[in-house]
Write a protein that binds this DNA or RNA. Structure first.
Lengths: 338, 338
DNA sequence: GTTAGCACTCTTTCAATGTGAGTGCCAATG
DNA sequence: CATTGGCACTCACATTGAAAGAGTGCTAAC
């Protein structure tokens, strides 16, 4: 267990490093944070704390940098405190309110806003879509066996995909199929009606049983493949951070962002039902994320399952990030419930 | 008018600069391209050509770099030649063929493929959507006055937007409205039926005339706002080019790519009905594009109006880029016609 | 337990220097 | 008269070495 003073030293080093990006030396800590102790005292504490795995030195005669372990201590501490949202919040709230073009456009906008406000990468996700209520299902004949499958989820979220059916159906047949599925599925989530559909929808359609079955298989595939949707915004801003002046590091981030599917799964995995989730560096299982942190906040809006988040460097300003995310998550809730 | 030898010098310098990225000196040109002339001769020619605006020197004692004017000469020349597609073409063709999930997913994939194959930024666009045949129009009630407007265009391209109507309509009413509009619009492009709709669809709906009119206004807005759709891929690859080692230059590109609307308009503006369009550096009106080149090739597939393109540095390998674009544009044609 | 002092280490910065690539110009050449 | 070899000059870039500065670890004194 750490002494009171050791805790203070850890917090000071983390805070100083977050602010400046430079390793913190004993003199600085003594002068700016622990006036009661001389640099020498701090040095002793630092040596102990380094041994315990809270700090490391980039080279022999540099100050200390915090490890993930130190950040974790720091983050756990600030989670206790009450955070205040930045002043721009009200402006954002208004700007989001003006966008009445549907969830997707709102989330695209919010992810950009997040990126711009923090200089980190903003993410917004709709997760567990198989739990969202279905509003309508239609099939449209595109020619030959190719059919457009259209699924509208609650709140106006549209999923669609071109699918191939084993046998050619007329548009009338397809309409009938869509109507039947909609009748059963409307107001329920896919996970609720999935099995029902496989069993019952086919009554009276024996002649095209295989084809209809295939249509439902394709629905299942679409909702599983896109079981969450991800919106990423403002990636260009992190280039202005000193942490990403090195081209290589930025390239890592960029190729991470291209793997939308993997990212979406990661977001879903780390987010917790309620409250803030912070995953720091090493704590990430993904290799590309070990030098990055991920902060996630779910928008509590009942069924919509939106998640807002930020991806940033280890030394991201967690306090500010969490405050912004929490505020926007609340706003979003208002927006989505309408 | 330039002499034969002057032309050769221009082509050599452009070619050498494209290959190496280093300003070309008189000695190099003499040794690698114009063995018959001594460096001194080349120097004289170069001095003349610099005066004519084909070259410039980054500093007094460096070799020459081509200006946009020189690139233009070079590009016009290679357009005469027959170009051969790279070997990987067949593999790509197969890979694209396996993606039967609709135009959008194909174009996303193609844009990434383009980026990866060239190390430039791949773009794929669907332009002039107001000219594409409409297949179905539906309205779905989301709650209150908010309605989901769904437009399916030929080939399974889906447009949707949440809209606000002045007055609340029942789902039955909305279905009726969708049906009427679909009946009129099916098989025609928006530009064809736009006026007809404004005039005739409202017969017998006097009671909700305003609301229906608003719905059509919103359709018009959606199809105008998104009159083209843009897919961008492989932006991370240009980081491996020496031209973008400078963070600042890359940031320009990145913020350019975020302005999807403006980019889409640019693509539409520069692309020509048939054949390759190359816009080099200064020739672009957009400030952010003055250090970049844009190569566009339309996929001739009748009504689909797809455009493939690449955004790269001034010294991009135009020959290879054009060859790849032409090949994929043909393939795409096969894919889209199905 | 805390602190001052000191030697030591390592990075960063700066100027000085040399090197090499490339030019422009001029006089000689065929 | 176009072409060429020669030569002085310019400029970027890499190398070096010295000095400065930040920070540490250790020890002895308080």
């Amino acid at each position: 267990m750490l002494t009171e003073r050791q805790l203070e030293v850890v917090f000071s080093v983390v805070y100083e490093y977050i602010q400046t990006g430079e390793p913190a030396g004993s003199r600085t800590i003594s002068k700016k944070y622990l006036r009661g102790c001389s640099p020498a005292t701090i040095r002793n504490e630092m040596a102990d704390l380094e041994e315990m795995g809270y700090f490391y030195q980039p080279h022999t005669s540099a100050g200390r940098q915090p490890t993930s372990k130190a950040y974790r201590l720091y983050v756990d501490a600030i989670m206790q405190r009450r955070r205040t949202a930045p002043a721009e919040t009200e402006k954002w709230k208004r700007e989001i309110g003006e966008r009445k073009q549907g969830i997707e456009s709102i989330l695209t906008y919010v992810s950009r806003l997040l990126g711009q406000a923090t200089n980190y990468v903003g993410v917004a996700a709709l997760s567990a879509l198989e739990e969202v209520q279905i509003q309508r299902v239609s099939f449209l004949r595109l020619g030959g066996n190719t059919v457009l499958l259209l699924i509208v989820l609650e709140g106006g979220l549209v999923h669609h995909s071109n699918i191939q059916l084993p046998c050619e159906l007329s548009q009338d047949m397809l309409d009938e199929l869509g109507r039947r599925i909609t009748t059963i599925a409307e107001g329920h989530s896919w996970s609720e009606v999935r099995d029902v559909l496989f069993r019952y929808v086919l009554d009276g359609l024996e002649r095209v049983w295989d084809t209809c079955r295939e249509a439902i298989v394709q629905m299942d595939a679409l909702l599983n493949r896109r079981s969450s949707r991800l919106f990423i915004g403002g990636a260009q801003h992190i280039l202005s951070l000193p942490d990403f002046q090195d081209i290589g590091k930025f390239q890592t981030v960029l190729s991470l962002l291209e793997q939308e599917q993997a990212l979406a799964e990661m977001v879903e995995r780390y987010s917790v039902k309620q409250g803030v989730s912070v995953t720091i560096g090493d704590e990430n299982t993904e290799e590309d994320m070990k030098q990055l942190s991920l902060v996630l906040v779910p928008a509590s809006g009942q069924s919509r399952r939106a998640i807002l988040g930020l991806i940033g460097p280890l030394r991201m300003d967690y306090e500010k990030s969490i405050a912004i995310l929490e505020t926007l998550a609340e706003d979003l809730d208002d927006m989505l419930v309408q």
